[in-house]
């Protein structure tokens, strides 16, 4: 998929673990893993908002577009 998820990078920059983020956002670790691995078909605005709030970042920090 040309949309890539940079969540691992943002998490590492903020010294946070996936488990913590999942708890803060209110999604399961399994769903967070789906998002991180790029298997997700869609991301809800509410989830994106919660992630940005929890990590104090912009959507562009998490999502990026690359040519295939």
């Amino acid at each position: 998929m040309p949309i890539i998820i940079n969540l691992d990078q943002v998490l590492a920059d903020r010294n946070k673990k996936s488990k913590e983020l999942a708890e803060m956002v209110g999604i399961t670790e399994a769903n967070l893993s789906i998002l991180k691995s790029g298997r997700a078909k869609a991301v809800r605005f509410s989830t994106l908002e919660a992630i940005c709030k929890a990590l104090d970042c912009q959507p562009g920090d998490i999502l990026a577009y690359t040519e295939e």
């Binding site: 769903n31 789906i34 998002l35 997700a40 078909k41 869609a42 991301v43 809800r44 989830t47």
Partner: peptide
């Protein structure tokens, strides 16, 4: 259903 399941 698959799309719904893979929507985070």
């Amino acid at each position: 259903k698959e799309e719904n399941d893979l929507t985070v």
